[in-house]
Amino acid sequence: MRAPIYGLLAEFHSPHEVVEAAKKVHEAGYRKVDGYSPYPIEELSEALEFHHSPLPKLVLAGGITGCLSGMGLEYWASVIEYPMNIGGRPFFSWPAFLIPAYECTILFAAATAVFGMLALNSLPEPYHPVFNAPNFALASRDKFFIAIEATDPKFDREATKAFLASLGAEVVELEH
């Protein structure tokens, strides 16, 4: 019995090839699949059916939280904790308070977008089995890859390897 592997990595030379291959891999029923490309290829994400990103909703929630926190802080400081009569203006001078609240909205929403994206991608992640493939450094240059994980129910070490090779790829095994 050979040592178990993480999966198989198939290397392609053009964006067109990898997108076509991804469609076929998806059609064949593989689901624990990921594509790798040096720049974002919308068609590749579509072919693997990564449609939904919860990020916009998270960012909306972040923005609302920021707005309420900003306004809440101003209300608390100016009305409850430290009420000061400044030129006879009301303690709760909401038109003037809108500006810091607005800035807090953007600050919280932007921070949610960045840290939410990192969390959804489970980054930082210094180690990943795909880095073991000798050619994988080219995924950040000019090569395109598809990885199928060994935990996929349809995965069969030899049959999947032959299938990927039939799509015109050079296939390597990924150690854990």
Binding site: A22, D34, G35, Y36, S37, P38, P40, I41, E42, L44, S45, L48, F50, S53, L55, P56, A113, V114, G116, M117, L118, L120, N121, L123, P124, E125, P126, Y127, H128, V130, F131, F136, A139, S140
Partner: peptide, 17 residues
């Protein structure tokens, strides 16, 4: 680089962000 590997899943969230 935080372990960025150009995964299609990552790019998808990345582009949205």
């Amino acid at each position: 680089a935080l372990g960025w590997r150009g995964s299609a899943r990552h790019w998808h969230n990345y582009e949205t962000a």
